[in-house]
Simulated assay, not measured.
Amino acid sequence: MSNLDETIRELQTLRDYWRYAISRFNAADLSYGHGTTTAGDDAAFLLLDSLDLPIDALDPFLDARLLPAERRLLAERIEARVTTRKPSAYLTGRSYIQGVRFLVDERVIVPRSHIGEILFNEYLNGQGSALLPDPMSVESAVDICTGSGCLAVIAAKFFPMASVDAVDLSADALEVAKLNLAEHEVEDQVELHQGDLFAPLAGRTYDLIITNPPYVDHEALDGYPPEFRAEPQMAHDGGADGLDLVRQILADAPAHLNPGGGMICEIGSGREILEEEFPHLEFQWIETAESQDAVFWISAEALGVS
C-alpha cells in the first residue's frame, strides 16, 4: 500500500484532513501570501475550495465524513501543495477577492489586490466614498495590468453605467480574463486589450483609472520563495526599485483622464520613493486591513487635467 493510500485509509473526516494538512505544511515550511497567511488558513482554503464548500465556513463541516473520492482528492492536493510548492489557488483553479470567486491558473498572478478590498469598503458602507467617485457617475473606466480580469469585473459590478476597458501585456493572462468575464457575465460591459499599459488605448479617456501594476523590486524578487516564483515573473517585476511601471503610468495617465476623474493605484511599499520623486503631486493614501499606504488615489486635476 502506498503512503497516499495509507493516508486515505486512516483519515476520515474533514477535521482529520485539516489537521494532517497543517502538520504537513508546517513540516515543509511552506510560504503563504496568496489570500492566506498561515498554514491553518491555507489548509482550510485548499480543503474547502476543493470540495466546493464556502471557504469561510470551516467549522460546520469539520466532522463531516468524506466520500472515498473526496478523500483521495484532498490527499492528492495536500501532497501537491507540499511537493510542488504551488499556491493553493493554482491547485483548486480558483481564487477570491472579498468572497467573489475568480478562475485562475499559472498564466496569471493569483488575485489579491488591496484595491478590491477598498472598492468593497468604500461602496458598501452605506455612506458613499469620501475620495472615489459616485458609482452612477462613472461612465468609463479602465483597468491597467488587468491580469485575471478580477478588478475589471469588480469595476463592472460597482459602476453599472460604465464601459470598462481592461489591458494587459500578456496574451495568456487575457485568455484567463476572458474566462472570468464570461463567468461573471460582463462580456458586454468589459473590453479586453492586449498591449503595454495605455498603448492600445490611443485617444480614449476615462472617468476612472484602476491599476495594480507589477511593483516588486529586484532585491525582493531575488528572495522569492517557490510559491511566488510559480507566478508569472512579469506580473511582479517592477524594476530595480519596484516603481518603473508606476512612473510610466503617472506620466501617461493625464492624457487618458477626463476632468473630474481620477486614478486609484496600488504600489506596495514604495510610498517614500514616490513622494520624494513627485513632491508636486497630491497623493491621497487609502488605508486597508494590512496597509496604510499601499494604495493611492489621485485626482485628474492633481495630475494637471483641466
Rank of each mutant, 00 (worst) to 15 (best):
E231L: 07
L103Y: 09
R229Y: 00
S163R: 10
I97V: 05
E6L: 07
A28F: 03
L91N: 07
F228V: 12
E290W: 14
T205I: 15
S299K: 08
E76P: 13
R71F: 15
G93R: 06
L151G: 02
H114V: 05
A253P: 05
D168K: 04
V295K: 11
S95W: 06
E219D: 05
A220H: 11
G126Y: 14
A253H: 12
Y32F: 11
P254M: 06
Q189A: 14
P226I: 03
L197D: 04
G238F: 14
R72K: 14
P226T: 06
G126I: 07
V246P: 09
Q127V: 05
V164Y: 11
S291E: 00
S88P: 06
S129G: 04
V153Y: 09
D207W: 10
Q194V: 06
S140M: 07
D196Q: 02
L67C: 03
P68C: 05
L179G: 13
D52P: 06
E191H: 14
G239M: 08
L179H: 13
C265Q: 09
M1I: 10
E275M: 13
R72M: 09
D172C: 03
Q98D: 03
N26H: 07
H193V: 02
A43T: 04
K157A: 11
Q194R: 15
S163C: 11
L74Y: 05
F198D: 00
R94Q: 06
I154W: 01
V305M: 06
R204Y: 15
D217C: 15
Q127A: 08
D168A: 10
R85C: 13
F102K: 04
A230P: 00
R19E: 14
I109Q: 10
L30K: 06
A57L: 15
M234G: 06
L4M: 11
M1L: 05
L62M: 08
T36C: 12
N3Y: 14
A251F: 12
S113K: 12
D196F: 04
G270H: 03
D16C: 12
R204D: 10
R19N: 12
L257V: 02
N125S: 11
E301F: 01
